[in-house]
Design a protein around this nucleic acid. Structure first.
Length: 772
RNA sequence: GGACGAUUAGCGCAGCGGUAGCGUACUUCCUUGACAUGGAAGGGGUCACUGGUUCGAUCCCAGUAUCGUCCACCA
């Protein structure tokens, strides 16, 4: 078959099924034929999915494979159902991640980005993107993703950048973007601010020390895990209702080591039951302290530079790394007898940079923020009032918990790779925000920072469709139909798209349904990670078992919103299923199955034919409903058992007698019909093998331009339904007979002998047997 | 600390008010004329624990334990 692109109906199927031989050929066939392309001028109803854009630095991992399988499944099904289906592909520029990759390359030759300068560095990143970025796009072809490649988007594309500038300006004009000096999460290694969601909290064991401030007259003992910050303390705070300290409030106390007098203040935020009930206030280096400090006018003392090195304390600790200083300060205080309680280990959550795992340093810094309260409220309302549905519904509390409690979003990053903030500062402190095609007055300089990557990906559902221009795509395909993604980025991304979509599109939601799936774990249910060494490579599995087998395995495990385990054995099982299907079709063809001509009336068909057609109708109806309700696991299970158990183990075996008889024509048409429909039904999950077999069986062009099977349960008469219910009895009869007689093959038992008469089906003509 | 979910055969999962199923693994038999990536016959579970509701609970309710994911400014 190699080299032959046409799989016509007259061609005999090879005895064995080799996925690699068909997959590349069929993908190319589909792509060349333009089946993936969506037309904004079409009269068909739209169905839209935008891909969660993978990082340009990324490659296909098993989680993508699941995510894509579901999206492709939905897209292919809707396409067959007569929708103008668009699955829009693309990538995210991934600010920090990408910049890190290129910086590492520079570091390998002993250079930093500063050696190149901003322009040259950005050019270098683009060059890297062209050469090695987007490996995942080719891997998507392997998987069979039916995406519209003509619409491939990248968050740094000119169009999408235009959207970023436009929305920035609009938000600024509505006072939803502002610049302020705040405590932000600072990564001393990446040298940039990062948002709350880019911080991973991990339990670290720290040292919780109690330190005595003051002298013989006024003294108070505080407890801290970050002793080095005491050098920048501006106050000590206690709870206003704490009887132990009431007499001290308002007084000043001596700060050891730096010999500064600092006030004792009272604030509700202090928990009297924690530690000593007194807390040091380092307003410039802690978010809580900053908040308290603002309320009480506490002095801001900056004691650390951007690298996390002590600076400006006027002590011998200047120039020391923050962690060394922590030890040093405690040691020094201990020498002075200031450490009241001995150190004890203490486990607490400490923030780490998501990219490089460096411990985050809260830092006082001037940054740009999005005021999220009004936007988040709109995002919450859209789900509350049912305009946007979350599937499965049990996930919505998580969504609400987040959008209802969201902090303002720090969007500026001290990086070079990304959308540069479109704000220009004049010589006298003027601030001008420039939209697309706007120019700042001469002599103004642009803010050096770039925007958080998530800022541009939040616009993805409409920026990819051409917004802010009023395009045909936007009119046709927005709001998108379904957003398919893992529940783990419900917060990272989904809520942000909701906020931006509702804001930019006059309250029109970016998608109607959020369909959440779980994570793929290893065969023991453990999370896959490189350090555990239990990661799997989807490409390897596709090479070995075929894309269809991987897709089927993932779809079959995809219960809504729950994680699934994956082991190589189950993929092999799916491959076996594909082989089964292959051989069933091969058998059908060898026995003259056909899709030509009218199906005989039910009353003219024998019992077995009636039974399988009735079952087929039932399965189509159920599978369709399950697919529509995102119950992919159950739909796959249903089709699997119908195909293997009902169709192959029983119908094919029993009808061997029929096909050998004189009156085979009606049954040949029935078998053709059943296979035709089953292949259609399975096409969204296993596109390659179904396409190959269906074209071979029918001699037609492609399953992709064929209608989705329809089920007409109303056409089922009472007798058909009874027959289905009786099949179990018939099966039992056959088995007993076969065992008693020592007959090895079901085919050798005539239907007459099966005992159709015995189970009261005399209305149906018994199948004549070729065997005596 | 909060939210949500899970706990059912060796492993991974369904299920559901009336004493349990699927895949895979395992045992035995079968080179049958689509398929040994197959067929047939089997073994294996006190459905986490403790109470409650009920004629009856794996399934409903409460609590306990363990695990998981996400969120979180207790220094």
């Amino acid at each position: 078959m190699s080299g032959n692109k046409d799989s016509g109906s007259n061609k005999e199927l090879a005895a064995t099924f080799t996925p690699a031989e068909i997959e590349n050929r069929l993908y190319k066939k589909w792509e060349d034929a333009g089946y993936f392309k969506a037309d904004s001028k079409s009269k068909k109803p739209p169905f839209t999915i935008v891909i969660p854009p993978p990082n340009v630095t990324g490659s296909l991992h098993i989680g993508h494979a699941l995510d894509h399988t579901i999206q492709d499944l939905l897209t292919r099904m809707k396409r067959m159902k007569g929708f103008e289906a668009l699955w829009l592909p693309g990538m995210d520029h991934a600010g920090i991640a990408t910049q890190n990759v290129v910086e590492k390359q520079l570091a390998a030759v002993g250079k930093t980005r500063h050696d190149l300068g901003r322009e040259a560095f950005i050019q270098k990143v683009w060059q890297w993107k062209e050469e090695s970025g987007g490996a995942i796009l080719d891997q998507m072809r392997r998987l069979g993703d039916s995406v519209d490649w003509d619409r491939e988007a990248f968050t740094m594309d000119a169009n999408l950048s235009k959207a970023v500038l436009t929305i920035f300006k609009r938000l600024y004009e509505k006072e939803l973007i502002y610049r302020a000096e705040r405590i932000i999460n600072w990564c001393p290694r990446c040298l940039t601010a990062i948002s709350d969601i880019e911080v991973d909290h991990k339990d670290d064991s720290g040292e919780f020390v109690s330190i005595k401030y003051g002298d013989d007259d006024v003294n108070i003992t505080i407890a801290t895990t970050r002793a080095e910050t005491m050098l920048g303390d501006g106050a000590v705070a206690v709870n206003p209702n704490d009887e132990r300290y009431k007499h001290l409030v308002g007084k000043k106390v001596l700060l050891p080591l730096v010999d500064r007098m600092i006030p004792i203040i009272a604030d509700e935020l202090v928990d009297p039951d924690f530690g000593t009930g007194a807390v040091k206030v380092t307003a410039a280096h802690d978010a809580n302290d900053f908040e308290m400090g603002m309320r009480h006018g506490v002095e801001l003392v900056i004691i650390m530079n951007e690298h996390g090195v002590m600076e400006g304390t006027g002590t011998k600790f200047d120039g020391m790394d923050r962690f060394d200083a922590r030890k040093g300060v405690v040691e020094e205080l201990r020498k002075l007898g200031r450490v009241v309680s001995e150190k004890r280990p203490y486990v607490h959550a400490v923030g780490h940079c998501q990219r490089c795992e460096t411990t985050i340093e809260p830092r006082l810094s001037k940054q740009w923020f999005v005021k999220v309260a009004p936007l988040a409220k709109a995002a919450a309302d859209a789900v509350r009032d049912g305009r946007v549905k979350i599937e499965p519904e049990e996930m919505s509390p998580r969504y609400f918990e987040w959008v209802d409690n969201m902090h303002d979003w720090c969007i500026s990053r001290q990086l070079w790779w990304g959308h540069r903030i479109p704000v220009f500062y004049g010589p006298n402190g003027e601030v001008v925000v420039c939209g697309p095609d706007e120019q700042a007055p001469a002599g103004y300089t642009q803010d050096p920072d770039v925007l958080d990557t998530w800022f541009s990906s939040a616009l993805w559902p409409f920026s990819t469709l051409g917004w802010p221009a009023d395009t045909d795509d936007l009119k046709k395909f927005y709001p998108t139909s379904v957003l398919v993604t893992g529940y783990d980025i419900l917060f990272f991304w989904v809520a942000r798209m909701m906020m931006m979509g509702l804001f930019a599109m006059d309250g029109k939601q970016p998608f109607n349904v959020i369909a959440l799936h779980g994570l793929v774990r290893d065969q023991f249910g453990k999370k896959m990670s490189k350090s555990r060494g239990n990661t799997v490579d989807p490409i390897e599995f596709m090479d070995k078992y075929g894309s269809d087998a991987l897709r089927f395995t993932l779809a079959r495990g995809a219960n809504p919103g729950t994680d699934q385990a994956l082991a190589e054995d189950w993929i092999a099982g799916s491959r076996n299923f594909a082989t089964k299907l292959w051989n069933a079709t091969r058998f059908a063809k060898l026995n003259g199955a056909t899709v030509e001509g009218e199906l005989a009336k039910r009353s003219d068909l024998n019992a077995i034919d009636n039974w399988i057609l009735t079952r087929l109708d039932q399965v189509i109806a159920s599978a369709d409903e399950l697919f529509e309700n995102f119950e992919f696991a159950k739909a796959c299970e249903l089709i699997y058992h119908f195909t293997w158990d009902d169709l192959c183990d029983w119908y094919l075996e029993l009808s061997k007698a029929t096909f050998a008889g004189n009156d085979a024509a009606k049954s040949q048409r029935v078998l053709g019909e059943v296979l035709d429909q089953v292949l259609r039904l399975m096409h969204p999950v296993m596109p390659f093998i179904t396409e190959e077999l269906w074209c071979n069986l029918t001699g037609k062009e492609s399953l992709m331009i064929t209608d989705w099977p329809k089920s007409d349960l109303s056409s089922q008469d009472q007798k058909s339904v009874e027959l289905v219910n009786m099949m179990q009895e018939i099966v039992t009869e056959v088995r007993r007979f076969r065992n008693d007689q020592g007959i090895k093959s079901t085919a050798k038992i005539s239907a007459k002998f099966i005992g159709l008469d015995k189970v009261g089906l005399s209305d149906y003509e018994a199948i004549p047997s070729p065997y005596p």
